[in-house]
Design a protein around this nucleic acid. Structure first.
Length: 497
RNA sequence: GGGCCGUUAGCUUAGCUGGUAGAGCAGGGGACUCUUAAUCCCAAGGUCCAGGGUUCGAAUCCCUGACGGCCCA
């Protein structure tokens, strides 16, 4: 029940009594006040004007926001209000106001929403402020805000009642503002490159495009089970077949898996597809995009993350998966990676759970994830993934066991996954068949056989490259945030009762 | 799913080997026309996460559960 059990305390009772008095004086929740400027605009406009210059400034401004602090003296007071742009100090003198406004103001609380009209000036200590001609209460706050100095430190309340976190933490506000800027920038960038933004189904009869367990829901009037999508991939590629040769979608995926610092059941993914291009073109585009994102968000290409420094201005390192595994496991030889029996022993020796169904490719990837992934701090493209773990990727011309595929790692985490698309319908059908076999023998993450998608390929899909970028993890990087819960406004939590 | 840690006033927290809960902020009353963690005086505020157990006595020790955090699978 969290805060709901805290309904009955002195503070709330007193504030409710004040609200009752307000109701008796008229509408306690008026909506006829209009502001004409935001706090930050005042700082921008007058930030470099000194006290004397401001004394000649007679323009009247109307601002509204939440009262975040108040210092009440006998006949004059200071207060700060906060709006969506920032804060500004108010100077409120009894003799400047009409009637009993000052007496009313004295009864208000931190957290109340107020509207104020007045002119700018600078205090003796130099703070740009509004000298109030009139001030009104626009909405009463009945519950006390978190303590002003330490703020809100209870993680649980920060997530469950995010509005309190947003009211009290400038860092949190900034994180989510950056998140929006990142998404806007990506959207503008891809649109500028000629990509068309589309929306594809979130509810799918066959969940495809990734190896993951889906959420299941039910459509009543059709009386059919549907899956929340684990990826939009197969629908976006149908659009490529349809002639939308450059498409992208930024939207939610849902995966029915555990929660961690990097996993939330619903998360945001960018996927984009580019006909007549290959996976190497995607790597180049990704580097350029990330570079421009860093500049957009923080003005240069240097990204500080959890005490480390990444330079998005440098060319990203490229390394094959095999070379990466060998480099981080010096006791292994190239031959070890091709010998299934040896691989099984090596993997088991490193504490990897080896299933009977695992082939050499899957074991190589398991080894990579166990011994290499977390070490890849600087931006690194890992290439040449085994076809065994890449059922939607094109085969390499020279090495048919290898897919023309890459993943991008930064800060030890997978940020992006891209490849040249498999557009041979017969090869795709065979790969689905193998996946469906795996599913039948108990692999819950194996893919379904999507015959409708194969049909689409049979009409002919242009040679295409595609990529997915995890937006939440990217925002974590760009906001120096350790937990995915800090970049999702309302992260998944257990319900309380 | 496993391990470790946490949960005390609205918020931030103290509370040692078991002896009946203390502070700061916020809030209430009073003073104060340039404060900014405003200041000064006074008074108030607690289901110590929940349930069970040990004990003369439990916020404190034990068990179970809830929720959260971190680590691991």
């Amino acid at each position: 029940m969290i805060a709901m059990t805290k309904d009955d305390n002195d503070i709330i009772r007193q504030r409710r009594a004040q609200l009752q008095a307000l109701r008796e004086r008229g509408n306690a929740y008026p909506n006829d006040f209009r502001r004409n400027i935001l706090a930050q605009e005042l700082h921008t406009r007058y930030g470099d004007k000194d006290k004397e210059q401001l004394e000649t400034e007679t323009e009247k401004f109307s601002l509204a926001g939440r009262m975040m602090s108040r210092r009440v003296m006998g006949k004059a007071s200071f207060a700060h209000i906060q709006d969506m742009s920032g804060r500004i100090q108010l100077f409120i003198r009894r003799d400047d106001l009409a009637d009993d406004s000052y007496a009313q103001f004295r009864k208000w609380d931190i957290g109340d929403l107020v509207g104020v009209t007045g002119s700018v000036f600078r205090t003796r200590t130099g703070e740009l402020s509004i000298q109030a001609d009139s001030i009104r209460l626009l909405a009463k706050s009945l519950r006390p805000l978190p303590e002003k100095f330490h703020g809100l430190s209870d993680q649980e309340i920060r997530y469950r009642q995010r509005y309190l976190d947003l009211i009290t933490s400038a860092t949190t506000r900034q994180t989510f503002q950056i998140r929006t800027r990142v998404i806007n920038h990506i959207r503008a960038y891809l649109t500028g490159c000629g990509f068309l933004e589309v929306e594809t189904p979130m509810m799918q009869a066959i969940p495809g495009g990734a190896a993951a367990r889906p959420f299941i829901t039910h459509h009543n009037s059709l009386d059919m089970d549907l899956y929340l999508r684990i990826a939009p991939e197969l629908y976006l590629k149908r659009l490529v077949v349809g002639g939308f040769e450059k498409v992208f979608e930024i939207n939610r995926n849902f995966r029915n898996e555990g929660l961690s610092l990097q996993h939330n059941p619903e998360f945001t993914m960018l996927e984009f597809y580019w006909a007549y291009a290959g996976y190497e073109d995607m790597m180049s585009l990704t580097e350029t995009l990330f570079r421009s994102l860093a500049v957009e968000v923080q003005g240069d290409t240097i990204v500080e993350y959890q005490g480390e420094t990444y330079d998005f201005g440098m060319e990203f390192r490229r390394l094959t998966l095999r070379d990466a595994v060998l480099a981080h496991n010096p006791e292994l030889s190239a031959g070890d990676l091709d010998d299934l029996d040896r691989l099984r022993n090596i993997a088991a020796g490193k504490g990897i759970e080896v299933k009977d169904s695992y082939g050499a490719g899957k074991l190589q990837v398991e080894l990579f994830e166990k011994t290499v992934e977390a070490q890849l701090k600087q931006p690194t493209f890992i290439t040449a993934y085994p076809v065994e773990v890449s059922p939607l990727s094109r085969r390499n011309e020279a090495q048919p066991d290898i897919a023309d595929r890459f993943e991008l790692f930064i800060g030890g985490r997978e940020i992006a996954n891209g490849f040249s698309e498999l557009n041979d319908p017969d090869d795709q059908a065979e790969r689905f068949r193998i996946q469906a076999e795996g599913k039948a023998s108990g692999d819950e993450e194996a893919m379904h056989y999507d015959a409708d998608y194969v049909t689409a390929l049979e009409y002919g899909m242009p040679p295409t490259a595609g990529e997915g970028i995890g937006i939440d993890r990217l925002v974590m990087l760009l906001t120096d945030t350790a937990s995915i819960r800090d970049v999702i406004l309302f992260p998944q939590l257990r319900t309380k009762e």
